[in-house]
Amino acid sequence: MYIHFPDDPPRYCGPNLTLTFPAFVDGERVNCSITAEALEDHFGAASPREEDTLRAFNGNRHKIEHAARRLLREIGKKPIILHSGYFRYCERE
């Protein structure tokens, strides 16, 4: 399975408090999201506001994409949402 993350900026969704970023899995576009809660709990976002979540995402993009790649390998070409609990689970391994 080949997974590539383009340099596209993430999109903020206020109602869901998430940032969405694209991945290409074997050439097919798949949406990946991370919750503001995960960005606050694990990546230093000061709040769930757009500017704070974007700053945390951009400063930790490599780690977030690594976690997304791992989850995509587990579930395949399906949209994913990275919640705070996923990072807690990964930290224990």
Rank of each mutant, 00 (worst) to 15 (best):
P6R: 03
D7Q: 11
D8V: 03
P9A: 13
P9S: 12
P10H: 08
R11W: 06
Y12E: 01
Y12L: 05
G14L: 15
P15M: 11
N16G: 08
T18G: 06
T18P: 07
L19E: 02
P22T: 05
P22E: 00
F24K: 08
F24L: 15
F24H: 09
F24W: 05
F24D: 11
V25H: 03
D26Y: 03
E28M: 09
V30I: 15
C32A: 09
I34V: 14
T35H: 00
T35G: 00
E37I: 02
H42N: 06
A45S: 08
S47G: 02
R49V: 03
R49D: 02
R49N: 03
E51T: 11
L54K: 12
L54M: 08
R55Q: 12
R55A: 11
G59L: 09
G59M: 00
R61D: 08
H62K: 14
K63N: 09
K63Q: 11
I64K: 04
E65Y: 06
H66K: 15
A67G: 06
R69H: 12
R70T: 12
R70H: 14
R73M: 10
I75T: 15
G76M: 05
G76W: 03
K77F: 02
I81K: 00
H83N: 00
H83A: 09
S84L: 04
S84R: 08
G85C: 00
G85W: 07
F87Q: 02
F87V: 06
F87E: 04
R88G: 07
R88T: 11
Y89V: 09
Y89T: 08
C90Y: 13
C90V: 13
C90M: 15
R92A: 09
